[in-house]
Design a protein around this nucleic acid. Structure first.
Lengths: 283, 283
DNA sequence: CTTGACTCTCCAGCCACTCGAGACTCTATT
DNA sequence: AATAGAGTCTCGAGTGGCTGGAGAGTCAAG
């Protein structure tokens, strides 16, 4: 019989761990002195402890190990467990690899561009939404603002609390500054009532439609002015390429802080639906 | 201004997380209603939150993220941090890969051999030790037992509390059952006193020497009889091959539970020093 | 005014330990 | 036999990054 310290030296396992395993009933000393409380381990227990340590080395949880070492476990059950473990490791390995790529990309970016941060690109998924909007091809960017201001002045008041964010849907994949085909309108948060159309003072008519769900969106939020958000298009485009995605549908601009009449202070989130580019990647 | 729920929807971040980040002072609401305690977030905060989430996605700890987003951080410091992070990921990636290999090996083993477990092989490192032993070439295995019993009967009594485990050093790499060149003796735990040699009743003399340290040992512990431990040699040998190691020195048998005169109940730990086999492994 | 959705604070729990405080116990040497 | 020093005991708290629940308060639509 060994006292905990010597057994710990033999098994190369910390004393605290042995005590802990005893406390949770995973691996208990062969004997405990009822007067002093000293734990005594027998050499015969070493194979079991080793088995536990090996299973732990495979990444199994202690609870699973407890099941695995209970005498009545079949080879089938064990196989199942290890199979699940294998899948789990493969998943986390994939995650780690992605993380490594991301860290490396960011290091690269610092070396390339200096510390000028730029907006962060994050993935999101947005569900399908009702949308009330007006699609137009604007010959010039400057013509957009009046219409937007008209919408902002009128629509929230009329729709009341159902109204979501002012949103632009960019139907032009090739984004340039003339003849932009863009749909402005509002996402509707609650279920839409019997709303067939809505006429603006200028006579333009907003029509309701369903904005499709986008399971994967690359998004970038920024504080900017109405005309100064072009930089981020480049940024987000590069990100999408770098991370092995491609565009998959019309992008959006969500005006989280809509342009107020007096100020040029607004917050926009660019959103682009993407899908993984299927490439022959060596695993 | 958004209430926490809406901001959570916008940022696709759980409410609980936002509250937590507020509590630890990593990302605080733009405003807190002093009467109700309601948190209010501004759209302007979204870029910062995104930055935090991206850094978290790189695997950084929140404490480090806090430093990283504090305004006065240089590109140098940031690079350092990411560099360390990269190293950490690479390390854990290597660990995970090893784990995956181990799980796969074990699955293989179940498919091959059925659920008959066999002893577990674990890695250990043992420091250099003083040793008091007797090296002999035994023509037959059966001649070992009397000598061992003689040693067990005499030595512990004479050395008192300094004595470690009965140990056999196997100088024969090619292990067969005749003419075994083996050294039996005792490891000495405390610093050895002025002990030059020790004479057994049969006239044999135990001589002291230094047992070298072995930074990496493949070990397997088993409950067995004196003559029935051959199976494990195969087991441990296969393990060493499978895991890309080679033997590096004389193996040992440590008798954790020494053979008592009346019983055949003993516990032995086989120990083989190993080194990584330098092979052209594709990373 | 009611109803239901939201939000608040505070506390416990997760996992697999580790560390420290304060009190015993063992053992080798004087 | 006394003592010093190493070892051991229990108990409680801490780790990181949250999540979940209880119980109470708040908001907004109808």
């Amino acid at each position: 019989m060994f006292k905990i310290g010597e057994f710990s030296r033999i098994a190369q396992t910390p004393v605290s761990q042995l005590r802990y395993y005893g406390d949770i009933g995973l691996f208990e000393p062969a004997e405990i002195d009822p007067f002093t409380g000293y734990r005594y381990y027998s050499a015969h227990q070493l194979p079991l402890l080793n088995r536990i340590l090996v299973l732990k080395g495979l990444g199994l949880q202690l609870e699973h190990i407890r099941q695995a070492i209970s005498d009545d476990i079949s080879a089938e059950t064990m196989r199942d467990m290890l199979h699940r473990q294998k899948k789990a490791i493969e998943r986390s390995l994939e995650d780690e690899r992605a993380r490594l790529r991301a860290v490396e990309a960011r290091l690269q970016q610092i070396d390339d561009a200096g510390p000028e941060p730029g907006p962060e690109v994050v993935l999101k998924s947005v569900p399908a939404q009702s949308f009330l909007g007006l699609r137009t091809t604007f010959p010039l960017m400057s013509e957009i603002r009046p219409i937007v201001e008209e919408m902002l002045a009128v629509v929230p008041g009329r729709l009341g609390p159902r109204v979501g964010h002012l949103t632009a849907v960019l139907h032009d994949a090739a984004f340039d500054f003339e003849n932009v085909d863009v749909e402005f309108g509002f996402a509707l948060t609650a279920g839409v009532p019997d709303l067939d159309a809505m006429r603006l003072p200028s006579g333009r008519i907003l029509e309701p439609r369903e904005l499709p769900a986008a399971p994967t969106m690359a998004t970038a939020a920024q504080v900017t002015t109405l005309e100064g958000k072009c930089l981020s298009y480049a940024e987000i485009g590069r990100w999408i390429e770098d991370h092995g995605y491609t565009f998959a549908g019309a992008g959006r601009e969500v005006f989280l802080q809509p342009p107020a009449p007096g100020t040029c202070d607004l917050v926009v989130e660019l959103q682009f639906p993407i899908v993984e580019k299927e490439a022959a990647v060596s695993s």
